Amino acid sequence: MPKKVDHEERRRHVAEAVLRIAGRDGLGQAKLRDVAAEAGMSLGSVQHYFTSKDEMLRYVVKYLGETVTERIVAGMGESSGRPVRAFLLSMAAEMLPLDERRRAERRAGQAFTDLAVGVPELIEDLRQGDRWLRERVAELIWQGQRAGELRPGLDPEREAVVLLAVIDGLAAGLLPDIREPRQALDAVRYHLDRLAT
């Protein structure tokens, strides 16, 4: 009986190879042949799942967004009964490049953002991910206000934008080791404490 192949699992396997290459060597090195070697597959197998590098990269952008989102959503599920500030801090830690996996994801994300300039499909994927995250953070801030944990006069939408900008700015300093992980987390904690009642 022929072996049943999970095509989506194979596509994710290729995406993981792209993320490893992008995190280690930069997205420019993620040529189909190099991706195939990293994934332990033949070039023909990779081309079976992705007809072009652009198609592969569009898939990886979505996969990367889904992977980080899944971890954030899992944290939301575990956050019931936890203070909103504690959850927002753990969300920030998930988004900051604090270990090799998150460093690779952040480098790949930056590379995809640069690549997206002039590619409407990629820009729209990035916009959707940003919109989803911003809305979730604003919702959490609003919940913190309702619970009396965060100041009532805050504008949740604007505070969500500011918090995400703080995380992005700290990440930019973490990647080249200009900033230390503890310093970045302390800065997020300090910012969240300023929102408290």
Results as ranks from 00 to 15, higher is better:
P2L: 15
K3V: 06
K4S: 06
E9Q: 12
H13L: 14
E16T: 06
A17I: 01
A17P: 02
L19H: 01
I21F: 00
A22V: 04
A22P: 02
G23M: 10
R24Y: 02
D25F: 08
D25W: 08
G26N: 06
L27D: 10
Q29R: 15
A30Q: 13
A30L: 14
K31G: 15
D34E: 14
V35S: 01
M41C: 09
G44Y: 01
G44N: 01
V46Y: 05
H48N: 09
F50M: 03
F50S: 01
D54T: 10
K62M: 15
Y63F: 15
L64N: 07
T67E: 15
T67A: 12
V68K: 12
E70T: 13
R71K: 13
R71P: 00
V73Q: 14
G75W: 02
G75M: 03
M76H: 03
M76W: 01
M76L: 11
E78H: 04
S80Y: 05
R82V: 02
R82I: 06
R82E: 06
R82S: 03
P83G: 11
V84R: 01
F87K: 00
F87Y: 09
L89M: 11
M91D: 02
A92K: 00
A93M: 02
A93H: 02
M95A: 05
L96Y: 08
L98K: 03
E100C: 01
R101G: 07
E105R: 13
R107H: 06
A108K: 06
A108H: 03
Q110W: 13
A111T: 06
F112A: 00
F112C: 03
T113W: 00
G118V: 03
V119Y: 11
V119T: 04
I123W: 10
D125W: 11
D125M: 14
L126T: 13
R131K: 10
L133M: 08
L133P: 03
L133Y: 04
V137N: 01
A138E: 08
E139N: 09
I141G: 09
G148Q: 13
E149M: 02
P152F: 13
G153F: 14
E159H: 10
V161T: 14
V162K: 03
A171Q: 05
A172W: 10
G173T: 07
P176Q: 07
R179K: 13
R179L: 15
D186A: 12
V188N: 04
H191Q: 10
D193E: 15
D193Q: 10
L195N: 09
